[in-house]
Design a protein around this nucleic acid. Sequence first.
DNA 1: ACCTGAACACCGTTCAAGT
DNA 2: ACCTGAACACCGTTCAAGT
Lengths: 219, 219
Amino acid sequence: MAQPSARTLTRERLAAAALTVLEREGLAGLSMRKVAAEAGVQAASLYWHVRDKEELLDLLADAVIADAVPPPRTGDWREQYLEYGRRYRALLLAKRDAAKVVAGRLTTGPRVLAVLEDQLDRLREAGFADADAAMASYLLSAYVQGFVLQEQSPLSAAEAAGASRGQVAHAAGETFRALPAETYPNLVALADDLTDPDMDTRFEFGLHRLADGLAALLE
Amino acid sequence: MAQPSARTLTRERLAAAALTVLEREGLAGLSMRKVAAEAGVQAASLYWHVRDKEELLDLLADAVIADAVPPPRTGDWREQYLEYGRRYRALLLAKRDAAKVVAGRLTTGPRVLAVLEDQLDRLREAGFADADAAMASYLLSAYVQGFVLQEQSPLSAAEAAGASRGQVAHAAGETFRALPAETYPNLVALADDLTDPDMDTRFEFGLHRLADGLAALLE
DNA sequence: ACCTGAACACCGTTCAAGT
DNA sequence: ACCTGAACACCGTTCAAGT
């Protein structure tokens, strides 16, 4: 196939420009004009390669998770399932606003398909029925996307304004503790647990529950 | 407290106007100008009641889930946990783009706090440790939000253009089936399972896995 | 085939000015 | 205290025109 010359615009170069802008300005700051400028072209030119901004975001979503790599085939299916979840989360956390970009978008890049294929293979091999393997895969991505979406968005105006996660969590804890104990005894008692900013532990907890719940299907 | 006269703008009336616009135009079509018009006021007036659009979206998120109601205290904790999940999903599905509005936003309306309080009470009563009860609650909302986010967003440009979910799912199934079977044997074999448009069944599957995984903590 | 210039309708937000 | 009018900088998208 004909190699596009160094300066011609392609969908790949468009996706790369969009990724750069995303990293620099966040999803809210990503405009067609800025992506065009990053690609060294006028805004109107993008519409030759892409129907609209929505389609550009599809390209961006593919680019965001293009680095997906299946975990090694070591340990049992459970350990490998956990590892899929951890890697997906890490992939999303690595790029600014990645969860917002990916959430609710169908990505079918070849790398993603390869990872999905591999994951299904391992689940079936572990003994899951076809439908259960498909569901287990969907379940994992819904959980990870939902989790990282929360994790990546500022908890409040305060955090957006520059306060650290720990500070915001502490303030939230104070809010719970300050609630009337007669009406909200549990919120007051669990204030610390509810606002614990250790996201790794939280993520692992959910991931293990999923794996345990799936394991019960094999008994 | 002084009753605001019928025509004065309040944060409550602002939230109600935003909700109306959301239902009519979707989140992408929700602008400060349209919300102002709906409230019978000029766009600039909103900034007296609200710092910026972000804060208006916070109000909107509260309004979206203000109707939350805890399930009846019948059956064991597991059945009640499932029911919390079902109701949360139903609440989000009832309002256009609700998952996108709520996802990654901290809502602390009194109704939501009451439901959370009640949920924690039941989990602790069932025997969960404090930290586990807090995690179980967070896990449920991450899962439901992640799930409905997928469910509520158009799977593709085709669906946005008016094709039914079933048609899109069928087309996606065709795509998987058409893949080279040597490279993607599992995607080809599970094409139907992966693209099954029955979202209720999918949701229930995940929900039961969560509940089973949590149940294992009590043994 | 691919890109530009100019335009259109529409944004979020600010601010002096009104009542 | 609350709202308006007008303005600013910035959007996504279209389209005739260029090469």
